[in-house]
């Protein structure tokens, strides 16, 4: 230590290093995240996708809705991607006006892909907020209250946790998809609710565990000793300390919600397609995969393009989640 201060005294550059500003957990985590190239690339990619989702009407070369009769003549049905030449039926050869070709109704595949970004973004983030809200509330109450309420809530959580979730979603979709409630926002509301109704259980378990261990910590004892009210202890001392694992959990909820929507739409019971050009959510990538599956021989690019879109968005979110976990959990 003595030599260190000697050196610091003689060398101004090192003296500065010794008096650098205090770094919080969050700025530390941010520094670690910035060093993770895969996570940073994912953030950039997802930011670009968010822009595409917001500015879809500006970016998309054509309307995602059903084309008019005159448009249809030009577009053709199952027109191949621009670089594919169809020798048997020349009018189906690709042209650059429709870079990824057209689908069975003459819809421009690229424009639909661009609009599909919206569904994936919305379906990723809104259920995450619902799920975290329910999970954090139940977890906090359960962990903080303890006793009978705790065991009651946890028994309920266990039951929800052991429900086979995709089965539950399928049944909920079948039950409500034809009702007015099930048709709100093309069925998106129903997907949000059924997803959050099952997935909060793991968040609640996580938060409860955190609260139980934090309750025993010295700083909580100190806060109690100086007479801080229970509510303040919960929200000002315990909740902020559970944030790191909650953020990581939230980051993994997003891709899982996106996959759920895509899976349900692929099974034909997810969001409902809409040919109305003014609908902000006319199509989803899962739906395009379903269409691409039936056009696997006639126009494979519907399938390829939407498969790449879903694969890349989920990989990006998982890579970001991994990066956040490594950054927020210094033990790793």
């Amino acid at each position: 230590m003595a030599t260190a201060s000697n050196v610091a005294g003689t060398n101004p550059a090192q003296a500065q290093e010794f008096t650098r500003p205090v770094r919080s957990l969050w700025s530390d985590a941010w520094l670690r995240l910035r060093r993770n190239r895969l996570a940073m690339a994912s953030i950039v990619y997802l930011f670009l996708l968010a822009l595409v989702a917001i500015f879809a009407p500006v970016i998309a070369p054509h309307s995602p809705g059903r084309p008019t009769t005159t448009e249809l003549r030009e577009r053709g049905v199952y027109r191949q991607a621009a670089w594919v030449v169809d020798e048997k039926t020349p009018k189906r050869s690709g042209i650059w006006k429709f870079p990824l070709g057209t689908d069975s109704a003459g819809g421009d595949v690229l424009s639909r892909l661009i609009y599909g970004t919206r569904v994936s973004m919305v379906v990723g983030f809104i259920p995450m907020i619902f799920t975290l809200t329910i999970g954090i509330t139940i977890g906090l109450i359960s962990g903080f209250a303890g006793g009978k309420l705790d065991s009651l809530l946890m028994r309920f959580t266990d039951i929800i946790f052991s429900l086979p979730d995709i089965l539950f979603f399928i049944i909920v979709q079948t039950a409500f998809s034809q009702t007015a409630f099930g048709k709100t926002f093309n069925g998106l509301l129903l997907i949000f609710l059924s997803f959050s109704a099952v997935n909060w259980a793991s968040v609640a378990r996580l938060v409860r565990g955190q609260v139980l261990s934090l309750k025993e910590k010295e700083f909580v004892e100190a806060a109690e000793a100086v007479g801080v009210r229970r509510g303040s202890i919960l929200f000002r001392h315990i909740l902020p300390n559970t944030l790191a694992p909650i953020i990581v959990a939230g980051a993994f909820i997003v891709p899982s919600a996106i996959v759920t929507e895509a899976t349900l739409s692929f099974l034909g019971i997810g969001i409902q397609p809409d040919t109305n050009p003014n609908n902000p959510f006319p199509t989803s990538w899962g739906q395009m995969i379903l269409e691409g599956k039936s056009a696997i021989d006639s126009q494979p690019w519907i399938l390829i393009a939407s498969a790449i879109a879903i694969a890349s968005i989920t990989i990006a979110f998982v890579a970001l989640g991994d990066g956040l976990r490594d950054a927020l959990d210094p033990r790793q």
């Binding site: 691409g292 399938l303 390829i304 498969a307 990989i315």
Partner: peptide
């Protein structure tokens, strides 16, 4: 493992089918 963990099975499955047939 990142690919297998994140990409839904119906996507990988259909891509495999496409590769197998084409």
């Amino acid at each position: 493992s990142t690919i297998g963990f994140s990409v839904p099975t119906f996507v990988t499955g259909l891509v495999l089918l496409l590769v197998m047939s084409k």
